[in-house]
Amino acid sequence: MTKVRVENLKKNFGKLEVLKGIDLEVREGEVVCLIGPSGSGKSTFLRCLNRLEEITDGTVIVDDNDITVKGCNINRVRENIGMVFQQFNLFPHLNVLENIMLAPVDRKKMTKEEAKEKAQSLLATVGLEEKVIEYPANLSGGQQQRVAIARALAMEPDIMLFDEPTSALDPEMVGEVLEVMKKLAADGMTMIVVTHEMGFAKEVADRVIFMDGGYIVEEGSPEEVFENPQNKRTQDFLNKVL
């Protein structure tokens, strides 16, 4: 079943064309990794999928909801798409538990008690059950990012977007976050991941997409893209990063 369908997606910032026509389909349970040089439009593309960026042209269909039409209830659609940011973006004035409980309770998805239970079980999954009453500032980067993942999962989304989730982390903390993401992938979550972690992409991705200059230049299984890239630009990029 198709979870996300993108047709001829274009995004301009003023006169600058960042996305020049992207087509993509993501099936349920699929893990798609987006790679490519910075400025290639990966993050912008990801942010168009939950309309954090307004879409200039084209169609984005998430779970049968066309999010590019006017009457679309984007808040409802977003409840089903979790997002994890490079800079974590935890709410600094709320403790870990409150960070996770806020959205499910406010959106009336759960009662306070249910949300608390859910939060505690999610924190256990990401290995932070003893940090419930800490404030974000007292956590390491890796811990913050794991809380951010738990916060997104608390809304019980079908799809998770990851925008360079490990790029702001100290090297020794990258592993703990990738570990959580691997677990999530193994549980069958539909994931779209913008990443510079080629090891993760190789190991976990069902499909790797190489973007450059606002286009999808090449896509395929990790073996195809990493071992036998067809496009010159993909080859150049991989030579630089691997």
Binding site: N50, L52, N75, R76, V77, R78, E79, I81, G82, M83, F85, N89, L90, F91, L102, A103, D106, R107, A148, R151, A152, M155
Partner: peptide
């Protein structure tokens, strides 16, 4: 962005 991405 984080708040809106949660559907708030």
């Amino acid at each position: 962005e984080a708040a809106r991405s949660l559907g708030l």
